[in-house]
């Protein structure tokens, strides 16, 4: 099977003007400008097979969105290669542009003052879709997202969640084979997030499209993607399953205890890092390898009413990992002055 997406040594650097603070400095900047070279994506390699649902994870500035922009042909890389469905994205051939879609959670692509139905009609003609097929797809998608009754309402009068659903419909009208989603649930309330996630999972399973998604919300990733690509400072630092992240980066487990008065904070601290102690509840952070020994000591001491051992929340693992990664390689190397 040929790859849906194939990336080799993809690199993108930007020259960013450094505007110093203050009026005098601004005037000086008119004559001599200082630029910083920012390497947003540094030689990444990645292969995605058709029908995969891949998540890009990473802190702001990790290069996730830049990678999506490169793959959708918005940006031209500094060096390296990429093929999506066999096309070089930044050549922007219409043949390629009819086969993929990009949805950006923070961007509005619909006509603001008109009903979404008008924008959809425009898409029908831009993508040369046969009328009956277009109308069937539109109605199906609107029904799946329960927005049929909102199609005739001006976009500016929709809620953020409703607008995001319309954006998704617009992106899917031409039945793209590859879908890039940049923060599709950003700013949405919990219910709207859930609906979008449920729709994406359902749609992906039904159609078998290849989806690459970036998100800050771990719950999006956990619910949707089997494969996670973690990026940090323009590089891919992890590529594998979600569980694998816990294996690899989660060196600790959290033991939650329900104890009685016999336990003191001092006693608990002797077992591991005491995360919280609000009698009768206590939480301990314990190195993975020490867990059996610590459990034995707790049980031997007795006076425990309840006990559970869990992996720390994924957010914490990833955040801790990125924090560690950042501190051992200071910001000075992130951008070299030129």
């Amino acid at each position: 099977m040929t790859a849906a997406i194939e990336i080799k040594g993809l690199t993108k650097s930007f020259r960013v003007y450094q505007k110093p603070e203050g009026l005098l400095a601004s005037v000086a900047g008119l004559f001599r400008r200082r630029y910083r070279h920012v390497e947003a994506v540094r030689g990444i390699n990645l292969t995605v097979t058709p029908g995969e649902f891949v998540a890009f994870l990473g802190p702001n500035g990790a290069g996730k969105t830049t990678t999506l922009k490169l793959l959708s042909g918005v940006l031209t890389p500094t060096s390296g290669e990429a093929r999506v469905l066999g096309h070089v994205p930044w050549r922007r051939e219409n043949r390629y542009r009819r086969r993929f879609a990009l949805v950006m959670g923070q961007k509005n692509q619909l006509w603001w003052d008109l009903p979404a139905a008008e924008s959809f009609r425009l898409h029908q003609h831009i993508y040369s879709l046969p009328r009956t097929e277009f109308e069937r797809t539109r109605d199906d998608l609107a029904e799946m997202l329960s927005v049929t009754h909102l199609l005739q309402q001006p976009v500016r009068e929709l809620s953020l969640g409703e607008r995001m659903k319309m954006e998704l419909i617009a992106a899917l009208l031409h039945s793209p084979e590859v879908l890039f989603l940049d923060e599709p649930t950003i700013g949405l309330d919990v219910v709207a997030q859930h609906n979008i996630r449920a729709f994406l999972r359902d749609y992906q399973q039904r159609r078998g499209v290849t989806i690459v998604l970036t998100s800050h919300y771990m719950i999006d990733v956990a619910a949707l993607c089997h494969r996670v690509v973690m990026m940090g400072r323009g590089r891919i630092v992890y590529d594998g399953s979600l569980d694998g992240i816990v294996e690899r980066f989660g060196g600790h487990k959290v033991i939650s205890l329900h104890v009685n008065g016999a336990w003191s904070p001092e006693l608990l601290s002797g077992l591991g890092e005491l995360l919280s102690f609000e009698p009768p509840r206590a939480r301990l952070r314990v190195a993975r390898g020490d867990v059996p020994a610590v459990l034995q000591r707790i049980l031997a001491a007795g006076q425990v009413l309840d006990l559970s051992v869990e992996d720390p929340p994924l957010e914490e693992i990833v955040a801790a990992w990125f924090a560690a990664e950042r501190s051992d390689d200071g910001p000075s190397r992130r951008g070299e002055e030129v």
Binding site: S72, G73, V74, R92, K107, Y127
Partner: peptide, 12 residues
């Protein structure tokens, strides 16, 4: 603002 992206992504 990046609104030009639309013309780069869509076949128009």
């Amino acid at each position: 603002s990046g609104a030009v992206n639309k013309y780069l992504i869509q076949p128009v």
